[in-house]
C-alpha cells in the first residue's frame, strides 16, 4: 500500500480510509499574545503569539517558541481578545505639535540666565 522510505511511516498504516480530514473551527484553540523579557530590569516586549487552550499552556508554548534561543528571563501571555488598541485609522491624533519645548528639558535655558546674572553682578562686587 504505502511505500515510504521510512519504515516508521509504513508502520503508521497511513490513510486506511480515504475520508477527508476536517479540522473544526476553534479546534486550534485561542490566540495569546506573547511578551518577552530579555534580562532582568528590561521591558517585556511583544514578540508574537501562540495558540493555546488556556493561559497556563500558552506560557508553556511561549517558552518553546520564543524562549528557546535568545536570552530570556521571563514571559507574559495575554489573550489577544483582551488587548485594547486605538484604531489604526486614528493615527493622526498622535500628530505632534512640534512646538513642545515647554515640556522638554532643552526648552529651559537656565545657564544663559545664570551667566547673564553673573556678568551683571561681577562689577558690583568688585567695588
Amino acid at each position: 500500500m504505502n511505500d515510504s522510505l521510512d519504515p516508521r511511516i509504513n508502520r503508521l498504516k497511513l490513510n486506511k480510509t480515504d475520508d477527508p480530514c476536517k479540522v473544526e473551527e476553534g479546534e486550534n484553540w485561542n490566540v495569546f499574545e506573547v511578551f518577552h523579557q530579555e534580562k532582568r530590569g528590561a521591558h517585556h516586549e511583544h514578540v508574537g503569539c501562540v495558540h493555546a487552550p488556556d493561559a497556563g499552556l500558552a506560557l508553556v508554548f511561549a517558552k518553546e517558541q520564543f524562549g528557546r534561543r535568545k536570552k530570556c528571563v521571563n514571559l507574559w501571555v495575554v489573550r489577544s481578545a483582551d488587548i485594547l488598541a486605538f484604531d489604526v485609522e486614528d493615527e493622526d491624533m498622535f500628530a505632534n505639535n512640534l512646538e513642545k519645548t515647554y515640556r522638554d528639558a532643552s526648552g529651559f535655558k537656565v545657564m544663559e540666565k545664570i551667566n547673564k546674572f553673573k556678568a551683571q553682578a561681577k562689577p558690583a562686587n568688585d567695588k
Binding site: E27, W29, V31, E33, G48, P53, D54, R79, S80, D82
Partner: peptide, 22 residues
C-alpha cells in the same frame, strides 16, 4: 492529535476568540 486538543479545551477560554493583533 484531535483527542488531546479536545481534552485540553476549557470552558470560558473561548468566550472571546480573536485573531492575533500584530
Amino acid at each position: 492529535g484531535r483527542w488531546i486538543r479536545k481534552a485540553l479545551m476549557k470552558e470560558g477560554t473561548f468566550e472571546k476568540k480573536a485573531m492575533p493583533v500584530a
